[in-house]
Each structure stands twice: as C-alpha cells, then as structure tokens.
C-alpha cells in the first residue's frame, strides 16, 4: 500500500511563506482561499516567549470528517490517502468546511482578484474559475503526483512528482513521501525525530506530521 504524508520540520521553518505563494501560483486559488498557510504563532509567556512558524493546510486524514458529511460525494479519498474534491460535483453546502477540525477548507462565493476588479497578469493566466462557489482545499498537488508516477518518478523524491510547497521550501522544512515505504524519506525522517500531529484526540489520523525535536534539524 501507499500512504502519502507531509512532514513539516518546525525547527527549520522560517516563516518565509514561499510555500504559500508557490501553492497559490500552482493551483490558481482565488483571494480568500489559501490551501497552504504558515501560521505565525507566539507561544509561551513573557519573558519566555518565542515565535513558531507552523505550516498547515488539509491534513489528508485517514478518517476525514469532511468525507462523511459531504452529501454530494464530491469529497473523495484515494487509496493512497489523498483526500480530494470533485469541483464538478460539489454543491458548495459547506458541510465539509464546518466539519474539518483543521479549518482547511475554503469557499469563495464570487469571482474576485487580489487587486480590484481586474485580474493581475498572473491571475489572468493561473486563476482557476472552477473554484468559485465550491469547497476547495489542498490536494497535495495530486495532478503532479499522478503525472509523475505515470512517468516513472517517485513522489517526494523527484520534484516533478512532488507538491509545489515542498519543492519551493527554501529551508528544507517540508518533506513529502510514502509513509508505508520503510525506505522513504518521510519514514526515515519520522523514525529519527520526535513529532506530533494536530488534534490527535479527534481520531482523524492526520497525514501531516510536525517534527519538533530529535535528530539533526
């Protein structure tokens, strides 16, 4: 079996938001939809305070609450763990958006652009009109993965088959791969480090791991 997961090394992330920009460019998400985010969070209490840069987005859960509530069947889960949305079927009811414990889903009700009524040069080329009026979210750049696999490439290893947020990360904080493969990059990384997943008590079994200690950063 194959189970694709994302790993974010919190020790490495510098909060540059390059992954965020790369995601927007690759997927043509309209303003209001930001599939990859890097949260800038203050932790601790004065004077022992520090900032944590926290990449987040769809957790591609093994037991996704968004899947069960979707009335149209637009939300689907593949055998490799990727949770995706069929934008031609979604009715935009937002059941999934209120069901997701990670706030990873977006609904943009009308076509809009970053600067006023006209699209920027990038938006004119990249913006995806299919995302208006429906729920949308990170899909691990599934088209890229599928095309890469078809070309004999390995997701997480070959950039042509790897999500753009991972490809663009300047500090190597983001890693993608197959956690069911004992020799994959993510398996080795998680084996050597201490990590957690968001809201594990929800029982959703997220496919997004966060390294916080252990091993070389």
């Amino acid at each position: 079996m194959t189970r694709y997961v994302m790993v974010a090394d919190l020790r490495r992330c510098v909060g540059c938001q390059t992954c965020t920009a790369a995601c927007k460019l690759a997927n043509g998400t309209p303003p209001g939809a930001q599939w990859r985010r890097v949260l800038d969070i203050e932790v601790g209490e004065y004077p022992n305070v520090k900032r944590v840069f926290f990449p987040t987005g769809c957790q591609h859960c093994s037991k996704p609450p968004c899947l069960d509530v979707c009335p149209s069947g637009a939300t689907q889960q593949r055998d490799d763990g990727i949770v995706s949305i069929d934008y031609d079927v979604c009715i935009g009811c937002a059941s999934c958006a209120v069901a997701c414990p990670y706030g990873a889903r977006y609904i943009v009700d009308d076509e809009r652009f970053a600067y006023g009524a006209s699209p920027t040069v990038d938006e004119a080329v990249n913006i995806n009109p299919d995302l208006v009026g429906v729920a949308s979210k990170c899909n691990f750049c599934v088209d890229l993965i599928d095309a890469g696999i078809a070309a004999g490439l390995t997701p997480g290893k070959d950039p042509e088959a790897t999500p753009q947020c991972v490809n663009s990360c300047i500090s190597g904080a983001m890693t993608f791969g197959d956690i069911d493969d004992p020799e994959s990059n993510v398996t080795k990384l998680l084996r050597d480090t201490e990590h957690f997943r968001q809201k594990e008590d929800e029982g959703t079994e997220p496919g997004f791991y966060y390294i916080w200690d252990g091993g070389p950063p």
């Binding site: 899947l67 509530v69 009335p71 149209s72 069947g73 079927v89 979604c90 009811c93 937002a94 009700d109």
Partner: peptide, 20 residues
C-alpha cells in the same frame, strides 16, 4: 446558501454517511 444551487440534486448522492 449553497454555492451551486442548480446542482441541488447532487445532495442525494451520499446517504451512506451524510446526514444532509
């Protein structure tokens, strides 16, 4: 309230799990 009201019939596609 739905984003795509003319697709309302799709509402009936997942009785296995969806309370909607």
């Amino acid at each position: 309230e739905t984003g795509k009201p003319w697709r309302a019939l799709y509402l009936f596609f997942r009785p296995q799990t969806s309370w909607m």
